[in-house]
């Protein structure tokens, strides 16, 4: 178990799903964790309360991650409260699945901005404190969808493919400053986001997964914990797939 005692972390999209599991896992590993949520204040409050009961330090920030000023302000607030920002997890993401021929400009832009522009916003804000400290761990949430061609996901896969390219470039820019930048690419995970597809085709999906089960948010959180740790200092610019073997293909 990676110890994050003394470390501070910021997680976007932290109130539900994979983000929630990441917040819980990093906090339980000893980090002070701030998270951003968009609208589900009830879920956010529940998470803060749950962790406060265990004497863990967690702070919730409501914001639209597409907003640059909000990102700058939240990072500034975290650095002011806790003195530094060690770990940034860009996890916020949405889907708006529809065939390209029928996709509205809104569906395209919403996904690109929420999933990819948010990564630009928060990574840029985090650059200065991490560079000055000569230490940082940035983990961006991609998806196996960027590698697969799934019908209906041109916008989603574009945003996630973009995240992977972005990750490699930023890794190179910041490597000499002790900041690693990596991505985690989840396979099929049991969250609100996949509920509709699971209801329609869960047993079909499981047949395609060598591990014969869907992933849990905690599976992803464990991978993020590893990359966020001090020990992962020589790993950078990588995409770690966490998919139970789904993308191995073959027979």
């Amino acid at each position: 178990m990676t110890k994050l005692e003394g470390k501070t972390a910021l997680v976007t999209g932290g109130s539900r799903g994979i983000g929630r599991a990441i917040v819980q896992t990093l906090a339980q590993a000893g980090a002070r964790v701030a998270f951003v949520y968009q609208s589900n204040s009830k879920a956010a409050e529940q998470l803060v309360a749950e962790l406060a009961e265990k004497q863990l330090v967690v702070a919730a920030h409501q914001a639209d991650v597409r907003n640059k000023e909000a990102a700058d302000e939240i990072v500034r607030a975290v650095v002011e409260s806790w003195g530094k920002l060690d770990i940034l997890v860009n996890n916020a993401g949405i889907i708006r699945d529809t065939l390209l021929a029928m996709m509205t400009p809104e569906q395209w832009h919403e996904v690109i901005e929420t999933n990819l522009t948010s990564v630009f916003n928060f990574c840029q804000a985090a650059t200065r404190p991490m560079m000055s400290a000569r230490y940082g761990r940035i983990v961006n949430m991609s998806s196996v969808a960027s590698e697969f061609g799934n019908k209906g996901q041109t916008n989603y896969a574009a945003s996630k493919g973009g995240i992977e390219g972005f990750t490699r470039c930023l890794a190179k820019e910041l490597a000499s400053r002790g900041v690693t930048v990596n991505a985690v690419a989840p396979g099929f995970i049991e969250t609100d986001m996949t509920a509709a597809v699971r209801n329609a085709a869960e047993s079909e999906i499981k047949k395609a997964i060598p591990a014969r089960r869907l992933g849990k948010p905690d599976d992803i959180a464990q991978a993020v914990l590893f990359l966020a740790g001090e020990g992962a200092s020589y790993i950078t610019g990588q995409v770690l797939k966490v998919d139970g073997g789904l993308t191995l293909g073959g027979f």
């Binding site: 650059t127 200065r128 560079m131 000055s132 820019e173 910041l174 000499s176 400053r177």
Partner: peptide
């Protein structure tokens, strides 16, 4: 290039 950024940050500080 990254060094120029770092230099400006540190001079400001």
């Amino acid at each position: 290039s990254i060094d120029f950024l770092d230099i400006v940050f540190r001079l400001e500080k």
